[in-house]
């Protein structure tokens, strides 16, 4: 399998030569269409990983390659979603979702001409996340879970090859969160984009990912890797099966070990 995202012995340092080291010697590869989850304690540089892969921050050492190209600026093929959905309150949900098309080429060139098709595409995407018919609403008329669904749509509207998710479900209640796991799994099974999901939630990681990486706290290093070979589509009931729970516990042990090391 070709590696779609590849980090080779990457250091990332913030704030000049005396700054803090956020990542040390990180090497990882993500295959095209793979769903990768990255877990770790707070401050382990998971968000730095996001910035590196999307080209928002250059590595201090080592190389980052995405889709076969050296990353030296914004990659332009990534969709992103965060814990906070950050919808623009003066735009309707549809117009929020269409925002990336107003920015990224080649959509930008045809944005006005293809207004109708774009809106139809956004509506279709909204329907797949269970928000059919909500396009004309303003984001502040939607609940937190609905906004996060819309935020996923915004991340996917330009059909990115790479989806970067930074704790996208962390602020939601447990029921909504699990519902959105299913939504995301369905979307991924249908479109098979490459996903890097950064999360604190081990069940979430095991439920969604093909492979889970465990990171140590700052400076972040990758300390463990676990392939999740559960059949797809995975049901929520599956998360209570002993083999699933065993994997979660195994990951938890890695995290505990990392945290122990931090204390001593």
């Amino acid at each position: 399998m070709s590696r779609f995202v590849e980090l080779d012995d990457v250091d990332l340092m913030y704030g000049g030569p005396d700054g803090t080291l956020a990542l040390r010697g990180a090497s990882l590869g993500v295959a095209q269409g793979e769903f990768l989850a990255v877990v770790g304690p707070s401050g382990c540089g998971k968000s730095s990983l996001m910035k590196l892969v999307t080209g928002l921050h250059p590595p201090s050492r080592g190389s980052v390659r995405v889709a076969g190209n050296q990353v030296d600026g914004p990659v332009k093929i990534a969709g992103m979603a965060f814990q906070n959905p950050i919808m623009l309150p003066w735009r309707t949900t549809i117009d929020n979702i269409l925002l990336p098309l107003e920015i990224v080429q080649p959509h930008r060139r045809h944005f006005r001409a293809r207004r109708k098709e774009n809106e139809a595409a956004a509506e279709a995407l909204l329907a797949t996340v269970g928000l059919g018919g909500f396009g004309r609403k303003y984001p502040w008329q939607l609940s937190g879970g609905m906004q996060q669904r819309a935020s996923l749509c915004r991340a996917l509207i330009h059909q990115p090859e790479l989806l970067m998710l930074d704790e996208p479900f962390a602020a939601l209640d447990a029921f909504t969160r699990e519902e959105l796991w299913s939504v995301l799994q369905d979307l991924w099974l249908e479109k098979r984009f490459t996903v890097i999901l950064v999360t604190h939630d081990l069940r979430e990681a095991v439920y969604l990912a093909d492979r889970v990486l465990v990171m140590s706290s700052r400076p972040g290093r990758i300390v463990a890797e676990r392939r999740i070979e559960l059949e797809r589509p995975r049901s929520l009931a599956r998360t209570f099966d002993p083999d699933f729970v065993a994997i979660v516990h195994e990951l938890r042990d890695h995290i505990s070990a990392v945290r122990q090391g931090e204390v001593s």
Binding site: G73, P74, V75, M80, W90, I103, Q105, H158
Partner: peptide
């Protein structure tokens, strides 16, 4: 301006001017 939103747009190749016109200025109205 929310830094995350700036990240979303910059990762798509948005210039400072795009971010200002699409988000910054309407947001400060």
């Amino acid at each position: 301006l929310e830094p995350e939103l700036e990240d979303v747009l910059r990762a798509l190749g948005a210039k400072k001017m795009d971010i200002m016109l699409k988000v910054g200025i309407p947001r400060s109205l």
